[in-house]
Design a protein around this nucleic acid. Structure first.
Length: 633
DNA sequence: TAACGGAACT
DNA sequence: GAGTTCCGTT
């Protein structure tokens, strides 16, 4: 159960980063050229994102609805959604408004939910230790049948970098783990803590390497003599065979379809100049200019289908002018057992099943197709044999002392492990070389203490059972994987880091385990460990909660912590001072809430209200609400 | 709603 | 020059 819950938590967090967005529109003062912002509170539609310009920040809200209910049926709850989707407006302390858009709530309760469910069971496949992030849009419909009844709602609310949304929109496609090398994060019953820890570190290294590689690859796509043109970019995507769930050849010469038009637009925008505002509307305008130039034409009657004119020449042009581009196949295509054949019924477009590892070119282009396949194989080889990924540096991981003090007899479940003081911190370099990004693994001890902290206990736990270690170790592995998915949370780095302790303002309602507070010794030797890990606020409300709840709370705290810590992109620091996360609320609701039931839907909706009354700027609140329980019962 | 093309703009 | 941004129209 815990297992599921945790994966649910994590996946949901991931999901939210990508999907759930509600934002206010006080952007006019920040980019006055934007005409559409004359109505400052106009709700944004899903297809357009005008939140910011080049990293300007807006006030935004993230909603996480993680509901694992097996009652949800597609289309059933639209009425309920409407009831639950009033536009809400709240004044923030700085006078700006926060708006909760109807569309977003709808999304949150229905589509969002199903995607989440899918992610729970598919994406976050803990057994296979893999985040399979491709093509999830195609799957969410089938995702709601196989999970338990547990509802978790997390709200992340406050000023968040607009980068968070736009970047995470393309992130999942770029984050994957290699198939063979991936260790299972799910510890076997006999797995030692040391091994788990090592695996955690290794996983971090893999993510690190992979992201570096992805960064490089993406930065190379579609560049010709320093100039980047849209048609070349699209062509590279098509030939690379790496984004076949975004853009694909059809079975006709030069013809391609944008399976995820908005996604392609985002890729384009990000690639060109990190333009977060790019969308299909604009991209298609650019494509229409190609009509006059006879580079691309529209295939009429088929949505999102275009065709290169003179593909052969275009490819030749690319070969002559472009830098050497190395594009390995997408590993996850193998993972998922090859790509699915897909049919867009509305347009009668049949898309052939692509063969993993080969370039999928139109049949009519056989001559070139073969060449391309060969070229691609060469490139693959060169990637595998010569391309060196920057190794992640691992420092300050004191496995030895831990091993000494830990019992090696793991066959007895009653064995307790004495943990040494917090010296099990792994630091991994992360992100681009020189970026200074670090993964800071949490201390095993403080992590465990946080996870298994019980408010009514007189002293903090010093010994941990194998069972607890087991649970926790799976978390560690999980974090190591997931943390890489939160680069956009880099905007929070400063607020959680040394200068501003966002948890220092915890209200009296929150207790902090004294033993979890950072010691002077720790902060002397190391950068101060994030307060979220060390000072993890444990709500008094947990007194009445079962251990699972407090564990979940702690887990989410760590997720957030790691999300904050492990960033891929660097955000200008001067922006961060005032861009603290307003507050993060975690609400774990009791199980068996079916969103599809109208009455309960309203109750879910009401969950937001008390959350929003908390105005602790820069505070992470983990709430386990008794009132919610009352409401629901 | 996708698609189109004008207009202003970078 | 090659889009980007926005928008009215089909």
């Amino acid at each position: 159960m815990l297992y599921f819950l945790l994966s649910a938590c994590l996946s949901g967090f991931l999901l939210v980063l990508q999907m759930a967005r509600v934002r206010t529109h006080d952007c006019t003062r920040k980019h006055p050229q934007a005409r559409m912002h004359t109505d400052a509170h106009k709700l944004e539609t899903s297809s357009r994102h005008h939140s910011s310009v080049n990293g300007e920040h807006t006030n935004e809200c993230l909603f996480f609805a993680m509901t694992t209910s097996n009652h949800i049926k597609s289309g059933e709850n639209s009425a309920a959604e409407n009831r639950l989707a009033p536009t809400r407006r709240r004044k923030r302390s700085d006078g700006t408004d926060v708006l909760f858009a109807e569309a977003e709530l709808t999304w949150l309760t229905d589509r969002h939910q199903r995607i989440f469910l899918y992610i729970c069971v598919k994406w976050f496949d803990m057994d296979k230790s893999r985040l399979n992030c491709s093509s999830f849009f195609g799957y969410f419909e089938q995702a709601h049948n196989s999970v338990n009844d547990t509802t978790i709602v997390i709200l992340v609310f406050g000023q968040v970098s607009a980068d968070l949304f736009t970047e995470c929109g393309t992130l999942p496609a770029n984050v994957l783990l290699p198939v063979e090398e991936t260790p299972s994060p799910k510890p076997s019953l006999m797995m030692s803590p040391q091994l788990v820890w090592k695996q955690t570190i290794r996983l971090g290294e893999q993510i690190n390497s992979h992201l570096i590689q992805q960064d490089r690859l993406l930065s190379e796509v579609g560049v010709t003599n320093g100039k980047l043109t849209l048609w070349q970019f699209l062509l590279e995507l098509l030939l690379s065979n790496r984004y076949t769930d975004f853009i694909r050849w059809t079975n006709r010469k030069g013809e391609f379809v944008l399976l995820q038009a908005e996604g392609v637009a985002k890729l384009w925008g990000m690639r060109k100049d990190r333009n977060h505002r790019m969308n299909y509307d604009k991209l298609s305008r650019a494509l229409r200019y190609y009509y006059e130039k006879n580079i691309i034409r529209k295939v009429h009657g088929h949505k999102f289908v275009y065709q290169f004119i003179g593909l052969r020449n275009l490819i030749k042009f690319c070969e002559q002018n472009s830098q050497e581009v190395t594009l390995p196949p997408r590993d996850w295509d193998k993972i998922s057992g090859g790509r699915q054949s897909m049919t867009i019924t509305n347009d009668q477009i049949n898309i052939k099943t692509a063969v993993p590892g080969t370039v999928n070119v139109p049949a009519e282009e056989e001559e070139h197709g073969e060449n391309l396949v060969m070229a691609d194989h060469k490139q693959q080889t060169s990637v595998l044999s010569t391309k060196k990924l920057l190794p992640a540096k691992m420092v300050d991981v004191d496995l030895e002392s831990f091993a000494e003090e830990s019992s090696t007899d793991e066959s007895m479940s009653s064995t307790n492990y004495n943990l040494p003081e917090s010296n099990h911190r792994g630091l991994l370099s992360f992100g681009s070389p020189g970026s200074g990004c670090l993964i800071e693994s949490i201390s095993l001890k403080s992590g465990l203490q946080t996870c298994f902290y019980k408010p009514n206990q007189m002293s903090t736990q010093e010994q941990f059972s194998q069972e607890q270690l087991k649970k926790f170790s799976s978390l560690l592995s999980t974090f190591a994987s997931l943390s890489s998915l939160f680069p956009s949370l880099s905007s929070l780095e400063q607020s959680v880091g040394s200068s501003g302790d966002p948890f220092s303002q915890c209200s009296d309602a929150w207790s902090v385990s004294p033993s979890l507070q950072p010691s002077a010794k720790q902060s002397h030797h190391n950068p101060p460990m994030s307060s979220l890990t060390v000072n993890a606020p444990v709500p008094n409300a947990c007194n009445q909660a079962d251990s699972l709840t407090s564990q979940t709370a702690a887990v989410v705290a760590m997720i957030i912590h790691l999300g904050v810590q492990n960033r891929q992109y660097r955000i200008r620091r001067h922006r961060l001072q005032n861009q603290t996360l307003g507050y993060i609320l975690l609400v774990q609701v009791i199980p068996n809430i079916g969103i599809e039931q109208r009455s309960k839907t309203c109750q879910i909706s009401s969950l937001f209200e008390p959350c929003l009354t908390w105005k602790h700027q820069g505070t992470v609140l983990i709430y386990r609400g008794g009132i919610f329980r009352e409401d629901i019962n």
